[in-house]
Simulated assay, not measured.
Amino acid sequence: MAIEPLLGTTAQRAYFGTVVLQAIVVLTMVGVTFGMVADGVELSESLKYKTLPCYLALFALAEIFEVLMVFDALRLRNIIQLFGITAFHMALMVMAAVQIEQTRTALVWRTAARCAVDFNPIQCDGPGTLFHRVRPFLIVVPCIIGASLVVLGYYLKVLYGEFGWVIFHVVGANPRMKTMYQYYQIMICLLKFDFFFFAAVTMQLLILVLQEDSAEFGITVTAIPIVLILLILCGWALQREVKWIMSISLVLMLASLSYFIYKLVRFYQPQNDATYATTRASLTIFTIVAFLLLFSTFIVGLRCYSDFDKGLAASKIHSAPTRPALKTKESSKLNETEGVPLGPRISIE
């Protein structure tokens, strides 16, 4: 049985199209919100106002990342990565919902009692205020993401049927090999999400919190390419089964967990209340998710390391073809004589 071409089925096109359309709508809503706020206030006037450009940058990064991840998953016929994207999509919905209150914290400075006496459309809440005008656009974002999640869930089920047999094409019918290959796919998927959440935490710190002349700012900027290189090397070592590079990667992962713990403690120290007032919720969510992902990557990495030199290397390097194979008369005769099963698709359960 030949593998369907990239975007060659209705389910693939619908899944990818839904993600692209959702990204366009969400970025439009976020862009409109940012434009309205930028027209109403001077963003450099206060640290609180920096929440909005960070919100825009974060969602732009997330939406572009999701589109690329979906295209990559469809190209590789990786159903495990599609499940990871679904979880990522749910996290985006939660983040969008949290951002509504964070935006209110950034824009609404005055209490209701003070606004009743001295009304200010920029710093108060209620009809006629800046926050009242941008709130509908903020509310639309989690609604759109939630609606697209339903569509993606339906087509994920269809794609599970389409892609479920590809792992059989790669490693054969051996259950032990199939399990090892599944862990390999999970590890590769986790490495991609690791980089996004690390970049998201770092971006929020650079835009909102850290001063450009501080030592921590320079260290954070330097860490971005270093982490990217380490993750790429880890993926390469995982595919090629290079034990010494994989060992170093696992040790660095374990050491990096302490960084996220350190940051979580700083977010909630009393002396940092003012610094993290408008960003504490989103930074906490992203830092905890990054910590859990990195810890999961370390655990799965140990399992994958234990599978080195057990016959899976060739299957990792030579993945399933992404275009339909041409069926010649010779190949048909070969299949008939060798008894190659061309029957029903096999699930990766």
Rank of each mutant, 00 (worst) to 15 (best):
M1T: 14
M1N: 12
T9M: 04
T9Y: 03
T10E: 15
R13V: 05
Y15Q: 04
Y15S: 06
G17P: 04
L21M: 11
V26Y: 02
L27H: 00
G31W: 06
G31N: 08
G31Q: 03
T33A: 07
T33N: 11
T33P: 09
F34H: 05
D39G: 12
D39M: 06
S44F: 02
S46F: 04
K48F: 00
K48T: 00
T51P: 00
L52C: 02
C54T: 03
L58R: 01
A60G: 14
I64V: 14
D72K: 12
L74P: 09
N78H: 10
L82G: 06
H89G: 04
M93C: 09
E101T: 10
T105R: 15
T105K: 14
T105I: 13
A106I: 04
L107K: 03
W109N: 04
A112C: 00
A112M: 02
A113D: 11
R114F: 10
V117H: 06
F119D: 00
P121M: 13
Q123R: 08
Q123C: 05
C124W: 08
D125K: 08
G126H: 02
G128Q: 07
G128M: 08
L130N: 08
L130R: 12
H132A: 09
P136G: 00
L138I: 01
L138S: 06
I139W: 03
C143D: 04
C143K: 05
C143W: 04
I144M: 09
I144S: 06
A147V: 11
A147S: 11
S148I: 12
V158G: 02
L159H: 10
G164I: 05
H169P: 00
H169V: 09
A173P: 10
T179E: 13
T179C: 03
Y181M: 11
Y184F: 15
I186Q: 03
M187H: 12
C189T: 15
F196G: 02
V201K: 06
M203F: 11
I207R: 01
V209H: 07
L210N: 06
E212N: 03
I219A: 15
I224R: 06
I224D: 07
I229C: 11
L233Q: 07
L233H: 04
C234H: 05
G235E: 11
Q239Y: 07
W244M: 11
V251R: 09
L257H: 03
R266A: 14
Y268E: 05
D273Q: 14
A274P: 00
Y276R: 06
T279Y: 01
L283K: 01
I285Q: 10
I285P: 02
T287S: 04
S296K: 01
V300Y: 01
G301S: 12
G301P: 09
R303L: 02
R303D: 00
Y305P: 05
Y305F: 15
D307L: 08
F308I: 10
D309C: 09
D309H: 15
D309Y: 15
A313K: 15
S315H: 15
K316C: 13
I317Q: 13
H318S: 13
H318T: 12
R323M: 10
L326T: 10
K329N: 10
L334K: 15
T337I: 15
T337H: 13
G339R: 09
G339K: 09
V340Y: 13
L342N: 15
P344G: 14
R345P: 13
I348T: 09
